[in-house]
């Protein structure tokens, strides 16, 4: 007991930033930017959701099947799906993120031309599917086959990289809430992807956001679709478990 007491007293000091109260980047935003997100008629991301809805029902490939041909009643069949990604993909025996799954389904099941990462088509479909889970808690699968990717994601998140020699964690955990130049550094919770970034003047994926930070620290980014990104996405989703999805979010 004499030994245990000091350890108990020290325990709160040992909690990392990830144990702080979790905040969506939404809470850091100016009120007018928040209003832009919450009002569907003002949220520019809704243009991609509408485009995605149209693509979802558009026949493609030799059998002229649309997404909706299989996934009928989208509001029900796709509800909660985005909240569970990245997930384990049996076909490739590897983790896959939502955009990867949509592209895979389109190519292998519809037999349609592949949709490139960050293409308008894939972003639109991702936004549409993501939007079906808006308001639902992020719910990463308990699947133990995902554990290795989550661990790899954690390692990538905490590894320093680039000429500026910075890790994701050094800004987004250790200095979240402080200002990098004029911008408040958000905690790294992927609650609204794909999202409309005012800086981009367009909708973009979490992978695009990760690449932006990597380029910012003057590191060589991974290629779009790389397993490293999916690992980071899986790790971030596990940290954000229970937080509400906002897709399509708006960010500065």
């Amino acid at each position: 007991m004499k030994r245990a007491l000091p350890i108990l007293l020290l325990a709160p000091l040992c909690l990392s930033a990830s144990a702080q109260e979790r905040r969506s980047g939404f809470e850091n935003m100016a009120r007018d930017t928040q209003a832009m997100q919450t009002d569907d008629t003002a949220n520019p991301g809704m243009l991609w959701v509408l485009e995605g809805q149209s693509l979802w029902h558009q026949p493609a490939g030799p059998a002229a099947q649309s997404c909706a041909s299989c996934h009928q009643n989208t509001e029900v069949s796709m509800r909660g799906v985005a909240a569970r990604y990245p997930a384990w993909d049996e076909a490739s025996a590897a983790p896959i993120d939502l955009a990867g799954r949509i592209a895979q389904c389109r190519e292998t099941r519809q037999g349609a031309p592949p949709l490139a990462r960050e293409s308008q088509g894939l972003l639109s479909l991702s936004a549409y599917v993501g939007n079906q889970s808006r308001g639902l808690p992020i719910a990463p699968p308990a699947d133990p086959r995902m554990d290795a990717a989550r661990e790899q994601g954690r390692a990538l998140y905490t590894a320093r990289r680039g000429q500026l020699d910075l890790s994701c964690a050094q800004c987004h955990d250790d200095n979240a809430g402080r200002r990098l130049a004029g911008s408040t550094i958000p905690q790294a919770h992927p609650t609204g992807y794909p999202l409309y970034r005012l800086e981009w003047q367009t909708l973009g994926s979490l992978q695009r956001r990760l690449r932006g930070c990597m380029t910012g620290v003057r590191a060589e980014p991974f290629a779009y679709g790389a397993s490293e990104y999916v690992a980071i996405e899986a790790f971030l989703a596990s940290r954000a478990q229970g937080m509400a999805l906002e897709t399509p979010a708006v960010r500065p």
């Binding site: 500026l164 020699d165 910075l166 800004c171 003057r218």
Partner: peptide, 24 residues
């Protein structure tokens, strides 16, 4: 420290091609 090393090229990880071998 989060302070970048402004005059060091060794011991860095995945430095972008444009910056490889160059100091800040």
């Amino acid at each position: 420290s989060i302070m970048p090393s402004y005059y060091r090229t060794e011991g860095l990880n995945r430095v972008g091609p444009a910056f490889r071998g160059r100091t800040v």
